[in-house]
Design a protein around this nucleic acid. Structure first.
Length: 878
RNA sequence: GGGCUCGUAGCUCAGUUGGUUAGAGCGCUACGUUGACAUCGUAGAGGUCUGCAGUUCGAGUCUGCACGAGCCCACCA
């Protein structure tokens, strides 16, 4: 044990060693925790970061919050498991690697081929993955590394296959032709949330279309039209509804049917739209409602198909130009709006324009009734658990968002046409199809080329990481799955409620018929100083490692945690981290002061950790009482996820009560070691979840055990030492200490002027601090105020007898300024008295307001009046 | 277009069911202190609580409208 602490705490010299000590202790692993066999478990599964890039401040916030939760519960004696992992992030990763290869070698994925590309991806992945894990350790995250998982490792591959097969056999997964968002460059479908809409200026063409004039931004799709639609209530077009018309087109006449559909807006354009069922989402829905045939004219390269005559082979953009020229020649264009602003759908990876196409894809049915689930569908069950609060959302408003989204949920397209990902466990041979964990025996079977949406594997994250399917036998959970599932809290950013949270809920319901977690806590986004999103392109991101290097991990964690009120975004800036670095140092020095006081070490040995020493003075009672209050407050706020409030309470106690007051008193009063050590121990425990490194370091200097697995103070063992009147008494003492501090400075300026024991401005007479540090003879309302003047200063003096020696404490105030202040105060009071009198003269107020309020207002008036009188006296004395 | 959140001191935010003179931290000014401390103490300046209207004896708080900021969802032929 080393009780000599350096003058300044140096995080970078200590943090790695402390983390290593924690990790070596084995206590990150719940199996090693010294808790009762039947101790309640507390599990958080870490949202696995994508392995595409280094961690950013958002990840740091997530790690800080979750580590706080876990460390708190660990101290409270729960069997805590925080399970780490990473996400292969199929499309995102493949794109990142493709970009890299193109930049370095000028090659596309097609040049490399599937196998070579996957090889490159694995290389990239190993690199970033190890970087991410290093960064995670740097944040002090107490994750159980022995259970580290990856969405694409062997166990998870098995789990994914098994899940697919089970869903397939249940009829929940099906293959079907549907309109999808197709990226012609990536050659893949995109989920709705992978499509980005960008505002764009383009042309709006008004076509002469049989008897109509109608507006379109995509004249080339006229080749695929099979109908026109109008609103059923549109009086202009009633007589056309149901007719079949011959329309002139660039490739000759073709037939369309006129249908009435509410999807058409009467106010837009001419109120007539052309219907291209195969290349527009709305149109395909209209077509489905009216049984209209579709005509496919655009292929998966984004080019016109062979049925487009001379336009075949052109890209849609080229075809548009060509067709417009031809239409103009034929007089089929009425006019063109040049600057039509609309949203264009873009691929979120490569920014190509999305083509809506009908395509064969794999889907998860959210509406299929499942016997096992009480004949309810995944959607119905996923809604139920939120509505019934079986899963609670914090902040509550996100419950509504989840429910809204779930209510409108369509079947989930899970297939992707990329190479990196879980390949679909389906084999084809001619017309035959086989779905299973392994390829079927026999020749000629070819595995489906598609891979799964990355959210399929991350949706299984709460149970695939806990050994499902091995640990799930005949509907019974065993081992880890039994111990830790359902988990307690899912902590993540609010932006992925729909992408991830909802899918985890459905997957867990399907696989285990239970919710994956009982509580969803959503933190806000980390924004830059100006409140803008941090992004690579803007270059306004803050590198967490840089911050840690500069200020230490504890400071970074505190900066995050104190600013983060529930659900609101966090504006992050360096000044805040610096302030917290100062605070960490303050904590360090509080410990240094306590531990270096002469008899501290002796008392450490005899100090009992859990039994508070008997308070000997009022100050002792006060500080122990404050400590109790603080512990209560912090526990309550942590239980309710109000991390910032908890940190505030701790801050207030540590800085404003302990350091400012009690330590100052301890400099005067003797024999405080036992209490100081007791307080320090408790203080380190409750600070530990927020600032784990510095607290562990201090702890290790006078304890041989690990702070990380100490016991959180028991609330029922904490006494209330202070009565109300004591508290008032202590306020007086605080006043006196203020005077002591001011007096010090005056003593330096005018050392010769030792004055009689006179009290002014404080409601106390003689203060006696004896060896037992008992403060006596406190009186209030003393009349014999004597003022000593020294030049233009008013001297404010107190004499204190410490151990039989009389010392003088002097405070000085500039006379003129003091007079000014008093006058101001008096004027203010006069105003208040008058206001208050007016208020009480109001008969409506007196008759209507509750009695309690009126009484309080009356008392207030009396207080003002008496204060006014006092001030008047003081002023005339001056 | 539909929905959600927010607007309080120069900055970051508290403000519990309507009821003292609307608070804290940081920053700023002045005077001091610095032998646990990167500190710290005391005092002070700074707010028509975005605006307008309403309910009420009384509105930062409740209601409506307007303005401004952010987010989510849907998507325009």
């Amino acid at each position: 044990m080393n009780t000599e602490l350096d003058k300044i705490y140096n995080p970078s010299e200590n943090e790695d060693a402390i983390y290593e000590k924690w990790e070596k202790s084995g206590f990150f692993n719940p199996d090693n925790l010294n808790v009762a066999e039947d101790a309640e478990s507390y599990t958080i599964i870490l949202p696995p970061p994508n392995i595409t890039a280094k961690l950013h401040m958002g990840h740091s916030a997530m790690l800080a919050i979750e580590d706080l939760m876990i460390r708190y519960k660990r101290l409270k004696g729960f069997r805590t498991l925080w399970l780490p992992g990473t996400d292969h992030a199929a499309i995102a990763t493949q794109n990142a690697v493709e970009k890299k290869i193109f930049k370095e070698q000028g090659k596309t994925r097609h040049d490399l081929g599937r196998e070579k590309l996957l090889e490159e991806i694995w290389k990239f992945l190993k690199q970033t993955q190890s970087e991410i894990l290093t960064q995670t350790r740097k944040m002090g995250a107490s994750l159980d590394w022995s259970r580290l998982a990856f969405t694409f490792d062997d166990e998870r591959q098995l789990a994914v296959k098994r899940m697919f097969v089970d869903m397939y056999n249940e009829g929940v997964i099906y293959r079907g032709e549907r309109m999808v968002n197709w990226c012609p460059r990536c050659h893949s479908t995109l989920a709705d949330d992978e499509v980005e809409y960008k505002e764009e200026k383009s042309k709006l063409y008004w076509l002469k279309y049989g008897p109509f004039v109608l507006a379109t931004s995509r004249p080339e799709t006229k080749l695929g039209d099979t109908a026109v639609a109008v609103h059923p209530d549109d009086s202009r077009y009633q007589h056309f509804i149901g007719q079949e018309l011959d329309i002139d087109g660039v490739l000759g006449k073709f037939k369309v049917k006129v249908v009435a559909d509410k999807a058409v807006e009467m106010d837009f354009g001419s109120g007539v739209i052309k219907v291209t069922p195969s290349h527009s989402f709305i149109d395909s829905e209209i077509a489905a409602r009216h049984n209209l045939p579709g005509k496919k004219i655009i292929n998966e390269e984004g080019r016109m198909m062979e049925n487009c005559g001379k336009y075949a082979g052109l890209t849609t953009a080229e075809a548009r130009e060509a067709i417009v020229v031809d239409m103009q020649a034929l007089g089929l264009i009425d006019h063109i709006d040049e600057d039509y602003v609309h949203n264009s759908a873009r691929c979120y990876r490569c920014d190509s324009v999305i083509e809506p196409l009908p395509s064969e894809q794999w889907f998860i049915s959210v509406d299929k009734k499942i016997k096992r689930l009480g004949d309810k569908s995944l959607k119905e069950r996923a809604l139920e658990v939120a509505v019934s609060n079986e899963i609670k959302f914090t902040p509550e408003r996100y419950q509504k968002r989840y429910i809204d989204w779930m209510t409108n949920l369509h079947d989930w397209c899970i297939s992707r046409q990329i190479w990196f990902g879980h390949q679909i466990p389906v084999w084809h041979k001619g017309e035959e199809t086989h779905c299973g964990l392994e390829a079927p025996v026999g020749e000629g079977w070819q595995q489906d080329q598609d891979t799964l949406d990355t959210w399929f594997s991350s949706g299984m994250w709460t149970f695939s990481t806990l050994g499902w399917p091995h640990n799930y036998i005949d509907g019974q959970k065993i081992n880890d799955l039994a111990k830790f599932h359902p988990t307690q809290v899912l902590e993540t950013g609010y932006e992925i409620i729909t992408l991830w949270v909802s899918r985890m809920i459905m997957m867990s319901i399907f696989a285990l018929n239970e919710v994956p977690f009982s509580q969803v806590y959503l933190h806000g986004m980390v924004l830059d100083k100006e409140g803008k999103k941090m992004s690579k392109s803007k270059g306004n991101g803050v590198d967490p490692l840089e911050m840690i290097e500069k200020f230490g991990t504890d400071a970074v964690r505190l900066a995050i945690l104190t600013g983060l009120t529930t659900g609101s975004d966090l504006k992050f800036n360096e000044d805040k981290v610096e302030a917290k670095r100062n605070f960490v140092n303050k904590l360090w020095n509080i410990a240094r002061f306590i531990l270096s006081s002469s008899d501290a070490i002796a008392s450490v040995e005899k100090d009992s950790i859990n039994q508070a020493p008997e308070p000997k003075s009022l100050a002792d009672k006060w500080i122990l009482n404050s400590l109790t209050e603080t512990i209560k407050n912090v526990s309550k706020n942590l239980d309710e996820f109000n991390f910032a409030f908890a940190a505030d309470a701790l801050d207030e106690f540590t800085w404003n009560k302990l350091a400012d007051w009690y330590l100052e008193i301890a400099k005067v009063e003797k024999d405080k070691s036992e209490i100081l050590i007791f307080i320090l121990r408790k203080l380190l425990i409750i600070w530990h979840p927020f600032a784990p490194f510095v607290t562990e370091k201090i702890w290790s200097s006078f304890n041989s055990s690990l702070l990380m697995v100490e016991a959180w103070p028991q609330l029922d063992s904490l006494k209330n030492y202070l009565e109300l009147e004591n508290e008032q008494e202590f306020k007086i003492i605080q006043d006196i200490i203020v005077a002591i501090r001011n007096a010090r400075s005056l003593n330096k300026i005018e050392p010769a002027k030792k004055l009689q024991a006179i009290i002014y401005g404080h409601k106390s007479t003689q203060i006696l601090l004896d060896n037992q540090a008992i403060i006596r003879n406190l009186k209030t309302g003393i009349e014999s105020t004597e003022i000593y003047e020294s030049g233009d200063k008013i001297v404010d003096a107190i004499s204190i007898i410490v151990g039989g020696v009389e010392i003088y404490l002097l405070g000085a105030i500039d006379k003129e300024k003091e007079l000014e202040r008093l006058t101001r105060e008096r004027d203010n009071l006069i105003r208040l008295v008058s206001l208050q009198e007016q208020k009480l003269a109001n008969s409506e107020f007196v008759s209507r307001a509750p009695e309690k309020i009126v009484a309080a207002e009356n008392e207030k008036l009396l207080n003002y009046k008496s204060e006014l009188e006092k001030i008047n006296n003081t002023i005339s004395n001056l």
